[in-house]
């Protein structure tokens, strides 16, 4: 058994690392969706002035100052003290989603502010309801405006799933670390993990860049013809 080769060992790793990869993907997708929804929600419901804005600003400052790992341990250790016992996975997903929420709220807020006032006015004139104004006119343009920054935060979320290994959720990094702790083959295990992260991350990044470029192109073509109309058409299109 001592002399077995790398590929023999690889066969042993595959089932464990395979299910760990699925965990990583599941966590990343869940957090990406929850954090984005929280961020968009916060950006939409917060007015530009008033005490509520001030309160949310304070929350955003504090939330961005506290490290993700500290927030993770806080959810994991502190909630049970108040009798709220969540499974580690749920506590972690909530912790990282709320850690990214202030960042994403700021990002989406910038995107919403960058949408021309005329767009909102035009939607009102056309008799669109508030809900449809947001959903069909403002948010699509706001999200387009911030797509690159949003993307980079999603990649950060994907990488931060590695922190789950410290609250005993067996994701990719944690699984590799656990195997390496037994057989001391840190190099090959961490190398495999690196390759898997690249295989998962690089195609997603490439895809998002392509979407970005395509949106940019579509936008500029419409803008050349008639920027105002283009905005209205794009916003009102079903």
């Amino acid at each position: 058994m001592i002399d077995e080769g790398f590929f023999d060992r690889l066969q042993g790793y595959l089932p464990i690392l395979g299910s760990a990869v699925l965990t990583t993907i599941g966590l990343a997708v869940a957090i990406a969706i929850l954090a984005s929804l929280l961020g968009i929600g916060l950006a939409v419901i917060t007015p530009e002035r008033g005490w509520f804005r001030a309160a949310i600003n304070a929350y955003i400052h504090v939330g961005r100052a506290i490290p993700v790992l500290v927030q993770l341990f806080a959810w994991y250790y502190v909630l049970p003290q108040f009798g709220i016992v969540l499974p580690a996975t749920v506590a972690g997903v909530l912790a990282i989603s709320f850690a990214y929420c202030p960042y994403l709220a700021e990002v989406f807020r910038a995107g919403i502010l960058a949408v021309e006032v005329g767009q909102r006015e035009a939607a009102q004139v056309l008799g669109l309801s508030r809900w449809r104004t947001w959903w069909r006119v403002i948010l699509p343009q706001a999200i387009r405006n911030v797509l690159p920054i949003w993307t980079s935060y999603l990649v950060s979320i994907f990488k931060d799933t590695s922190l789950f290994s410290f609250i005993a959720v067996p994701e990719l990094f944690g699984a590799a670390k656990a195997i390496a702790a037994l057989n001391f083959r840190y190099f090959e295990l961490f190398a495999i993990v690196t390759v898997v992260y690249l295989m998962l991350g690089l195609p997603v990044i490439a895809l998002l860049r392509r979407v970005e470029r395509r949106l940019d192109r579509g936008q500029s073509r419409l803008h050349r013809r008639s920027p105002r109309l283009a905005g209205l058409i794009r916003g009102a299109r079903r």
């Binding site: 590695s162 290994s165 990094f173 961490f190 992260y197 991350g201 690089l202």
Partner: peptide
Amino acid sequence: EIVRTTPLLLHLFFVFYV
């Protein structure tokens, strides 16, 4: 590209254990 796509935690453990 590798550093920007993989977690800091992995790099830390790489330096520490490998």
